[in-house]
Design a protein around this nucleic acid. Structure first.
Lengths: 207, 207, 207, 207
DNA sequence: CATGAATGAGCTTTCATTCAT
DNA sequence: TATGAATGAAAGCTCATTCAT
């Protein structure tokens, strides 16, 4: 029967939510603490009860961000009875779904890219994110190779190529949405990669 | 009979060069007009004789930036005697060479990405850049298809996939350079796409 | 039969004690209510149940401060059987003893000096403090004069000189402790003053 | 024919003058950069062209302050043909004259006292100030002793006593001006000390 | 053309004070 | 009584921009 339940985690989240929205609209630099506070329905000073500085809020958003998408991909690695190809497609479809939910956050992603070039912590965050992806993709591909689903190939390189297609298409779409139809384009790109990974048409054994 | 040759274009360029260096190191927002001026060997006030504002310098850099790489890819379209595949590879190799010369500018590219989400002009600039690429890639691919070098495919989609591989690998490498070996990885990615574009192993027609 | 004895005076004291320590370390301005509260083992808000504002705490400390040293000097005035000179020396020794106990509070004294120039209430408090001293010193000196222990002199002026020596030496020592040996120096200064107060060497009545 | 003479030293001085006035009125903490700027007839930002921070202005004022009074006392040490007693009186009279010119700065002195307890640099500044005094007083007294003008005594102790009388009287007057008549009181105090320093009435040697 | 001193709006951050619990 | 989360005024400092020289 706690008289006041600990709201502090909720408050932190409330601030981060507001910050993400403001950052998405204005970018890190143009966003003022005041804006974030107002959006969170709090006073400016209150932010400082939960975050030491603006930079800490940015890093808080980074964490939030990075923990967001790769949530449940890891289990795919263990679904060894499912064909690798199918698992890769599943992963991509789920990512696309996530993506569409968080489309509005894309500008923040690019803020982080810009920041990352100057800030080790941010760079590490982004790395962790990609590594998370690769650590799912590469084993699945390896399994596919081992099982003869794919031809002999460098699993890590293929995993990076898949990530690159995803990431690169996203960028192209982000800046020229009228020229790129995101989902079909990503599907097409992945399709191309998967085709190139197919085992060589087995000469008909016999004849 | 110009007694004084027009220095003003040279000055503009001098300022833009300085600005690019400063922006690469500090980002648009943290870069001060003072920094740019000092780097250009000029006084702060002088910048305003050539650019109305900081934003104009940024846009100036954008122009600079965008006109930089697609210099002479267009002629490739007309080299119809050269196999499409070879031309694509050439284009990629040249882009990689450019890239390595301008590696230090990558942070500025990501600044533009961040800015583009909020600034139409910047977004248009980036679009123009990509479109330039696509307008070379797509026709070459089409020619390849027409000529039977490639299987039937959507040339634009394939061109986008190639751009995406390039762009995406760049991003992965930028933020995790220790995990990605840029040039081999781009080559590998492109190779995969090209393979998927090969025509089906033609059953030897008759005989 | 008060079930709860009046804790409020104790609480006030507890707060003032904490405040003195914090003020001594940080000065009035840099000291935060939070610091005082923590030092007192109370919550920030609680301070406001006992003091209307930070300023009130400062004034509370001033009172505390001023009532501190002149505790029991007044009785000396009435010890007329004791030589004035001896009483002055006693008073000084006791003051020195007090001083050593409260050395850590010296910074607060100088805070008050600084504040006094802008705050009538504080100025009045300091005045009261000095006046208390003078009101003991002057009568004792007067008695000494009357009794022939001292030569004819302006008792008030002499009293002020004694106070000044005390106060001045304290300042010198406070800011250059390695150059001033406080207690011997005060003793020496007082000694000089007392010597100058001696009655003229009675010419030896001839012979 | 310098087109723009270097005003920067003048500006610095202008700012320090303004700062001293504002500090005298409001104290270091209550004084806002804005106040100083306005008083100096400058904009807030301009202060930062000449001083890195508020603290630097305070330290600038300290320097100003410390170099102020002991200007030309040192030569007194070499005026060996003048009686020591007379030189001491001269020094005091000059100090009193200075004091009256700079009376309005007294509050700033007490600000420094308060600050000194927490700031080494300020403490060092004050020490230098006192040391300057003592380094004039002590040699003169020594000369007086050597010449038989004064009795055998510890010159340094006597010098400190004189300083203490000066300093202490100043404090008493500062906080209770209606009770202390500054100049006569300082004169009286010094007189007392000088009397105590007189050589013992020499028994007529021999006879 | 070029300069750089000057400006002041605008920002982050702090902290005395309030008040619902 | 006691708490401490919340507030928002206020302050120090920065920097794009202007303009007299």
């Amino acid at each position: 029967m706690p008289p006041r339940p600990d709201l502090s985690e909720a408050r932190r989240q409330q601030i981060l939510d507001a910050a993400m929205q403001v950052f998405a609209r204005l970018g890190f630099d143009k966003a003022r603490m005041e804006d974030i506070a107002r959006r969170a329905g709090l006073a400016k000073g209150t932010l400082y009860l939960y975050f030491k500085s603006k930079e800490e809020i940015i890093l808080g958003v980074l964490d939030q961000f990075m923990g967001m998408e790769l949530r449940d991909f890891r289990p795919l690695v263990d679904l060894q009875q499912t064909p690798a190809r199918e698992r890769l497609l599943q992963m991509m479809e789920r990512s696309l779904a996530d993506l569409q939910r968080f489309e509005w956050l894309l500008p923040v992603l690019y803020e982080f890219y810009a920041l990352a070039t100057r800030n080790r912590l941010v760079r590490k965050g982004i790395q962790r994110f990609y590594r998370g992806y690769l650590e799912v993709l590469a084993p699945i591909i390896e399994q596919g190779v081992a099982r003869g689903e794919f031809r002999q190939l460098d699993a890590r390189q293929a995993a990076l190529a898949i990530s690159a297609i995803f990431e690169g298409t996203l960028v192209l779409w982000a800046f020229a949405p009228e020229e790129v139809d995101l989902v079909p384009q990503i599907r097409a790109g992945l399709q191309m990669l998967l085709e190139s990974m197919e085992p060589p048409r087995s000469r008909r054994p016999d004849a």
